[in-house]
Amino acid sequence: MKPAATSAPFAGPFALGTLSAPGEAPFPALVRPDGHALDLRTALDAPTLTIRELLERWRERLPRLHALAADATGEWQPLDGLCVHAPVEPRQIFQSGANYRQHVIDLEVAHRSPDDPRTVEEARAEIAEIMDRRAAEDLPYVFIGLPSAITGPYDDVVLPSWAQQPDWELELAAVIGRPAYQVSVEEALEYVAGYTISNDLTDRATVFRRDMRAIGTDWLRSKNAPGFTPLGPWIVPARSIADPDDLRVTLKLNGETMQDESTKDMIFGIARIVSYASQTARLLPGDLVLTGSPAGNGMHWGRLLRDGDVMDGTITALGAQRTRCIAEETQ
């Protein structure tokens, strides 16, 4: 685990995180923007508390969290020197694919048939119309990820030796705060406790099974290696985010901007994705709903992840994460 930065920029009076002092067990923390943290086990007199357990009583606990954040006399400690873990351990991860308009258009244009008679401009315009119809008439594309792929926001990411085309996908993640089953689009955001940052790493070479093309995508193989989902650093309460459908998603690779897009470009907004997932599955407190990645992935740039690469990911009002890629050692 890497130590936290000395500051913690995010919107609102507080955020939630999971921290630890060197050599000690992780603890659930209330974090202030000035770079100080409060151990919620002590503050709430709950010795075994975790962030997920806190979310299970989210509406009941929220007023108390606001009061704690405003109390300067609490046992606040500086983030400097503490280690930052993934903010929550979800039971389920719901991931959205092909959900950014420009990203899908770029992919469709790049994979046109060589004998396609359309110009690039004509192809983009036609595909844009299809995306508009999809937003109005179709359903989100959602699949399941594994919690074992989650790692902390500052941890190194090991690139498996079998991953030939590892790629980045920075995404906004909604964190569920109430059990949600068959909820409407209109009420879906009432079930979201807050938001955090996720980087949904993908090995492009294993997205499709070469031996079973008719089966389609293989998300188990391509997305769920250990550490392939850096998460955090913080969960920022939903009420601190004025408009989650208008946040800037930016990823830099070794200091160079690769992704830089607003969540306004999403084909399906957060409410539609949460509602759609809940029509089949029961979403539980602490679960993650990833909302898809904007244009600017490595396949677009012709530059995929390799040993020593450093990814800096930021989303407006949610803080920042930094992860370094390490090639898996082979024997």
Results as ranks from 00 to 15, higher is better:
G319H: 09
P285M: 15
T73D: 14
V192P: 00
A188T: 04
D156G: 05
F228Y: 15
T119P: 00
R133D: 11
P285D: 14
R91Q: 12
Q331D: 12
Y191Q: 09
A123Q: 11
T50E: 09
G302Q: 07
A225G: 01
E329W: 07
G216K: 06
F10P: 00
V142E: 06
L30T: 02
E75K: 10
R91G: 13
T314P: 00
R204G: 02
A21K: 13
K264N: 03
S198V: 13
S20T: 05
T323W: 02
D155S: 10
G35W: 05
A69D: 03
E256N: 06
F10S: 02
E190K: 13
I127W: 11
E137T: 13
G81N: 08
L30P: 01
S278G: 08
K2Q: 13
P140K: 08
R239A: 13
D132A: 15
T202G: 11
I176S: 05
Y195G: 07
T48M: 14
Q165E: 14
D312Y: 00
L283E: 08
A193D: 04
A320D: 02
D200K: 11
H66Y: 13
M1H: 05
G269V: 08
A11I: 01
E261I: 01
V158K: 02
P9V: 04
I93K: 09
E24Q: 15
I267W: 01
R324K: 08
F94Q: 04
A173F: 02
V185Q: 14
P63C: 11
S222N: 04
N224W: 02
P114Q: 12
G308D: 05
G319L: 09
V185N: 12
H66K: 15
A46S: 14
V207D: 04
P13M: 12
V310L: 13
S198G: 12
D243R: 06
T206V: 13
E169D: 12
A29T: 01
T217W: 07
Q164Y: 00
M131F: 10
T257R: 11
N99F: 10
F228T: 04
V31W: 09
A317D: 15
C325V: 03
V185D: 14
D312T: 14
G23N: 05
E89A: 15
P237G: 06
V236F: 05
R178C: 01
L231I: 03
I105E: 08
M131D: 07
L318R: 06
E328N: 03
